[in-house]
Simulated scan of single mutants.
Amino acid sequence: MQIFQILNTQDTIISYAKKTIAEEAKAIAYLEELIDEEFSNAVETIHHSKGRVIITGIGKSAIIATKIVATMNSTGTPAVFMHAADAIHGDLGNILEDDIVICISKSGNTPEIKVLVPLIKSFKNTIIGITANKESFLGKEADYILHAFVEKEACPNNLAPTTSTTAQMVIGDALAVCLLHLQGFSSHDFAKYHPGGALGKKLYLRVSDITSRNEKPQVSPDSNINTVIVEMTEKRLGATAVTDNGTILGIITDGDLRRMLTTNTSFEGLTAKDIMSTDPKRIDDDAMAVDALEKLEENSISQLLAEKDGQYTGLIHIHDLIREGIL
Rank of each mutant, 00 (worst) to 15 (best):
D274I: 08
D286H: 12
A239P: 01
S49C: 11
M1N: 06
Y312A: 00
H147L: 13
D11Q: 10
T131V: 05
V242Y: 01
F4A: 14
R323M: 15
I225V: 12
A65Q: 00
V69R: 03
K134V: 11
L34Y: 09
K152H: 13
I127Y: 01
D286F: 08
R282K: 14
A272E: 08
H89E: 14
T240Y: 04
A272I: 11
G238F: 05
G269W: 05
E297Q: 15
D91V: 08
Q183A: 14
K67S: 04
N73S: 08
H147W: 05
C155S: 08
K202W: 05
A191I: 06
R259T: 02
N109H: 14
S186H: 07
E135M: 09
T45F: 00
I229D: 03
N157H: 09
N299Q: 10
I100D: 02
M82L: 15
L180A: 01
Q10P: 09
V150L: 02
L179K: 01
L270C: 07
K308L: 14
V219R: 10
A148G: 11
K273I: 07
T56M: 11
K124M: 04
A191N: 05
F190K: 10
K67R: 08
E294W: 04
T126Q: 01
L119K: 12
A85W: 01
G90M: 06
I102F: 03
K19W: 00
N73D: 12
I63K: 10
E112R: 12
N109Y: 14
L175S: 03
L315D: 09
D285W: 09
N224H: 10
K18G: 03
Y30R: 15
I88L: 13
L34H: 11
N157M: 12
N245P: 02
E135W: 08
E32R: 15
A85P: 00
S74A: 11
N224R: 03
E24Y: 07
A191E: 04
P156N: 07
L327F: 14
Q2D: 13
A289F: 08
A160M: 02
I35F: 09
L7F: 13
A148W: 00
P161K: 06
P195C: 12
T56P: 05
V219K: 09
I322F: 14
S49Q: 00
E32F: 11
M232T: 12
M232Q: 11
H181T: 07
T163Q: 06
N94A: 12
V150K: 06
K19R: 13
D291H: 14
A70C: 06
L205H: 03
Y30Q: 14
F4G: 07
N41K: 15
E38R: 11
L182Q: 10
H194I: 13
L205E: 06
G325A: 04
V228E: 05
T126D: 00
D256S: 00
Q303C: 13
G59Q: 05
V228L: 12
M1Y: 02
V228K: 01
K152N: 15
L293S: 04
P78K: 09
D309F: 04
I326V: 10
H317Q: 10
T166C: 03
I318Q: 11
G197W: 09
L179T: 07
V207A: 02
N226V: 14
A287D: 12
D284W: 06
K50G: 06
L270R: 04
I252L: 04
A84D: 03
R258N: 00
G310W: 10
